[in-house]
Write a protein that binds this DNA or RNA. Structure first.
Lengths: 145, 145
DNA sequence: TATATTTAAGACTCTTTTATCTGAAAATAC
DNA sequence: GTATTTTCAGATAAAAGAGTCTTAAATATA
């Protein structure tokens, strides 16, 4: 049981990778998929979502590919997360209790609301550029191998 | 994308319901499933897990059913969660970054670790009795209708 | 114009989760 | 013993998520 869907995780990783290249040119999805060890066709679908949501720009043909629609320091993680997984991740009752909601939260929900708000703030305040920089400083990689 | 699996949520709700009845007799699974609007056969399977993990006791035949293996104030939510969803929920990297782990966490992971620890503590400290009482005080129901 | 490169789009498959069905096995009551 | 009530166990089905494949459309370049 993952917090984010794989689709969402792959989307974030791909966006981080494109951001890390920091160039103006389009990056072919095939190149991204090979670098990150993500199935090409699957990644294509995911990036289509991001382009449809105006977070990326795509271009067909030779020298085509995708690029960020905005500078990497202006794209917040929350934008990618909500584009792919939707925003209900941060609103639903964790126990699925029928009456439970923001108005009348169950105890777990109330606690979770605090917790969740912290995470949401984090995703709202962290840009691709920022996260990429931090990941780089820590010597972590984006790829599986 | 839910935080807990439906199996886990149903397990918790069923345990809360049995606890709420607070009687010594066995509660038929059919009655629980009807009260909580959960598929009988599905719930049967879930409760089988809980009995196998010694959180519940089951008894066959007329007047049979399930009951809590311990007083409700001695069963912590974490026991049910780990019995059903396992304990890895609280250890994995939220972004699925390859190198990321407890040893060298990515920034998101580090933040998530704090968040997660808070939740884990909550689940470790909250008993069925306690949660049931709170839900009751708030006027929330366990059933879908 | 022809060809190669690249994303777009939709159908399709595979896997996991969720849910249902069926036939036991066990316990009880009569 | 026989019928009834209940859990147990395994097969099956439906739905959703993850991943693959094929064809079409757009672009660049020769």
């Amino acid at each position: 049981m993952l917090f984010f869907s794989k689709t969402c995780i792959y989307g974030i990783r791909a966006a981080l990778y494109v951001a890390s290249l920091g160039k103006q040119e389009y990056v072919p999805i095939r190149a991204i998929s090979e670098q990150l060890n993500i199935s090409f066709h699957f990644l294509t679908k995911i990036l289509q979502i991001l382009t449809q949501q105006n977070l990326m720009i795509s271009y067909r043909g030779p020298n085509g590919g995708v690029s960020l629609a905005k500078p990497a320091d202006q794209i917040k993680l929350i934008e990618i997360i909500e584009a792919i997984d939707g925003s209900n991740l941060f609103t639903e009752c964790i126990l699925g209790l029928p009456g439970c909601g923001t108005q009348s939260p169950c105890p777990i929900h109330a606690q979770w609301a605090v917790t969740r708000q912290g995470m949401q703030n984090m995703f709202e305040n962290t840009s691709l550029a920022e996260l990429g920089r931090q990941i780089n400083e820590l010597g972590l990689r984006l790829a599986d191998t």
